[in-house]
Design a protein around this nucleic acid. Structure first.
Length: 755
DNA sequence: TGACTGTGGGTTTTT
DNA sequence: CCCACAGTCA
């Protein structure tokens, strides 16, 4: 067996084996970044470092999981004991253990963006009596988030002239007050928002030397993936963890400034620059060879990114010279775009024997997915949409989770407001309002106000009944495992009955199924946690409802994905970061869409959009198609659009136009004539024709799965499956004696006879 | 009190 | 176009 170090190039190996001291790896797209990270951790383990001494922080759960799996392949089961997780999940786990030190319950709730927004709305309208149009809850949310990400507390906010001036300009002088109240309300509810998970972690390390000491000693080797996307606060935490008197400064950061696409939420590539200042002993490695993509794709990407001023110098190159040019698809409308993209997908699947999972459609905004979904459905192509309204954001799922949250943390105001009268139990809006007033006047939580507020008899009874019900769950949640209590809550809350009573339509059935799926997930979580607890001697695995909720709050749709299913992927360019596909479609390349309208007004916005485009381009391994439409529906009306300025930044040598407007035939034609000279096309093996006197092609509609057919070139075979609709139906056929296991033929063209 | 209808407003990316 | 909220009616 090859040694794992032999699977690395010189630079990669040097990075992997530099185990001591600060290291910064600047890694271009497809340069083996994940490989370096995982092999380095594997290397540390081989050198005898204990797995629990290694911390690896990522941005997505998926990246963390993938890393663990890959380490496992090199060093086996002990990989599972490495602390690999997202910033948020890892810190949530630590904060849960140390909650007391910072005055939170260990079963603190985690507020997602919806919770945050609705709390802000209530503060703005009810508590402060301000106009929600002037003080848009969404705008406030991102403003507060940005403040937190830069370690600006409400008190500091009040003294920050720049922020105050910005607020005055925007005619929102009370932002600081809203911020302050928001923080107080979260604290009172025993809740942390996403930013708090970082902020409280920072606070913990900074103000509790004993605790800081504990984790510093524990995490001897700290790794960070996607370092370019860390914000100031995350960097500050890393700094606290790894830089202290006598520290070995074992911080290993991997990133690519050219792929920094989260500046809008506070990420700053300053962190990559500050790294050298804060860790003068640091070593820098540059991974510049791209192993993923072919020549035209890499060059096109380089040309685009060269238009950015702010970047670290590096030269990304590839040894893969065989390549198709980038194909540019000019479309009439967004409908036309979707149709032609899906036509091209069918063509590519046929020509290049692509699986559905080899293909991704990327776009700038999630709203663009709809048109592609329609077309893919029409052609019976399996697909999966990532992002958009997540499973966990669905009303019925959130409702159920709110009940569970309340059972664990009664002060969780967002959860309480959400379900206090859902399903209806006689607690009216007026009643809730009165409770809220009572809470505000007396500085109580809503939960506490439920016992003291003056209410009419009927309402009082409804409230006290509900409170008693929740209290019974709370007692049980403290001792029972997640599943047994969740299953009872599902029934006793009346949720199950309410959902069951409304299954007259597709949507109602969907709601019931979704909620059931949550319960199934809890069953699985409970079983897994118990299983783990029996394996680990310390029994640290926690099967409580509180543990489940803190896990689930940080999950996204991407974490539900079934990677084994063969489907076409639809996602935003942001979501595609870190992924790769043989064929990538970047769609909606129009001014005001990509780059977005918004970005043009933000300083540095255009460069960020360009980096995003760079990320999108470099997802493609072999085939890259870029499309734009001349008009597009926005807000229900057709609007003119012009091609994105970024298109002009790709050199003429690296792309070809795929036909004019609406000429669908050109799209379906082989691109042979326009493809560059130096590529080797994966041509199917030529075999002698089977001569038959009586060969009569059968009509395409007769070719159905299971039928035995004869082809003049490939001989006899069995039809495995048929997909696509009408003219575009494609049959997958297994020919006996063929050297290719399965062939995919477009029935419109293929001459097949049923035998 | 709760369900339904109409209106008005927002509309980038996400842990 | 789609969602959230407000106002109306049973």
């Amino acid at each position: 067996m090859r040694h794992y170090l032999d699977e690395l190039n010189d630079v990669q190996r040097a990075a992997v084996t530099t185990t001591e001291g600060p290291v910064l790896v600047i890694a271009g797209p497809g340069s083996g970044k994940t490989r370096v990270l995982t092999y380095r951790i594997a290397h540390l383990l081989e050198q005898g470092v204990a797995p629990w001494q290694i911390l690896a922080l990522t941005f997505t759960n998926k990246a963390a999981r993938e890393m663990t799996e890959r380490i496992e392949r090199v060093v086996g089961a002990k990989a599972k004991e490495v602390w690999a997780g997202t910033f948020h999940a890892t810190f949530a786990r630590i904060l849960r253990a140390e909650a007391r030190a910072i005055g939170y319950p260990s079963s603190f709730s985690i507020y997602d963006t919806d919770d945050t927004t609705s709390l802000l709305r209530r503060i703005i309208t009810q508590e402060m009596g301000l106009d929600p149009q002037q003080y848009s809850p969404n705008a406030l949310r991102s403003r507060i988030s940005l403040a937190k990400s830069n370690l600006i507390t409400p008190a500091l906010y009040r003294t920050n002239e720049r922020l105050l001036e910005e607020d005055r300009q925007a005619r929102r002088p009370y932002v600081a007050d809203i911020y302050e109240r928001y923080v107080a309300r979260c604290k009172r509810a025993g809740a942390m928002d996403f930013d708090d998970l970082l902020l409280q972690m920072h606070y913990l390390l900074q103000n509790h030397p004993d605790i800081a000491d504990k984790y510093r000693r524990r995490f001897c080797y700290v790794h960070v993936d996607e370092f370019q996307d860390t914000n100031h606060l995350q960097y500050a935490i890393l700094h606290l963890l790894t830089k202290y008197p006598g520290s070995p400064e074992n911080l290993f950061a991997v990133g690519d400034d050219a792929q920094s696409i989260y500046a809008f939420r506070g990420a700053t590539i300053d962190n990559m620059l500050n790294f050298s200042k804060d860790f003068p002993r640091r070593q820098i490695f540059k991974l510049e060879q791209n192993y993923r993509s072919t020549h035209h794709i890499v060059t096109a990407a380089n040309e685009v990114i060269a238009h950015n001023r702010r970047q670290l110098p590096k030269t990304i190159w590839t040894a893969r010279t065989d390549s198709y040019k980038v194909r540019l698809l000019r479309c009439l409308t967004d409908d036309d775009e979707a149709r032609r993209v899906v036509d091209l997908i069918l063509e590519q699947k046929n020509r290049f024997h692509l699986r559905n999972s080899d293909i991704a459609i990327l776009y700038r905004t999630n709203a663009q997915s709809r048109k592609f979904e329609e077309q893919l459905r029409r052609q019976n192509l399996p697909y999966r949409v990532f992002g958009g309204l997540s499973f966990y954001q669905r009303k019925e799922v959130k409702d159920f989770l709110a009940y569970l949250r309340l059972a664990v943390n009664p002060y969780d105001e967002e959860a309480l407001v959400r379900i206090i009268n859902n399903p209806a139990r006689g607690i009216s809006v007026t009643t809730v309002y009165k409770l809220g007033q009572h809470a505000q006047v007396n500085g109580l939580t809503l939960w506490e106000a439920m016992t003291g507020a003056e209410l009419p008899e009927r309402a009082r009874k409804a409230v006290s009944n509900f409170r008693a019900l929740v209290e019974s769950w709370q007692r049980r949640a403290a001792v029972e495992d997640a599943y047994s209590i969740a299953a009872d809550i599902y029934r006793q809350s009346g949720l199950l009955a309410a959902l069951k009573s409304d299954v007259s339509n597709e949507e109602g059935i969907g709601r019931l199924e979704n909620t059931n799926a949550v319960l199934d997930a809890i069953a699985e979580f409970t079983a897994q946690a118990k299983n783990l607890a029996s394996l680990e001697e310390q029994g640290s695995a926690d099967s409580s409802l509180a543990a489940y909720l803190q896990t689930v709050s940080l999950l996204t749709d991407a974490d539900l994905a079934d990677d084994h299913a063969d489907h076409i992927t639809l996602m935003s360019a942001h979501a595609a970061k870190g992924l790769e596909y043989r064929s990538v479609f970047i769609t909606g390349m129009e001014e005001h869409l990509f780059p977005s309208y918004f970005s043009l007004e933000t300083p540095g916005g255009l460069e960020e959009e360009r980096r995003l485009f760079y990320v999108a381009i470099t997802r493609a391994k072999e085939l890259l198609t870029i499309s734009y439409a001349l008009s597009r529906y926005r807000n229900g009306q057709l609007r003119e659009a012009s091609p994105s300025r970024f298109l002009g930044e790709i050199g003429r040598d690296h792309y070809e136009n795929l036909g004019g407007i609406g000429s669908r035939r050109i799209a379906a034609e082989p691109a042979r004539a326009t493809v560059s000279g130096n590529f080797s096309r994966p041509t199917p093996a030529q075999r002698p024709s089977i001569l038959t006197d009586d060969f009569k092609p059968s009509p395409p509609e007769d070719i159905v799965p299971g039928v035995r057919v004869r082809h003049l070139k490939f001989g006899e075979g069995i039809v495995q499956s048929v997909e696509g609709a009408r003219e575009n139906r494609i049959a997958t056929i297994r020919f006996s004696g063929d050297d290719i296991p399965e062939r995919r033929l477009v029935l419109r063209f293929a001459k097949l006879m049923i035998v």
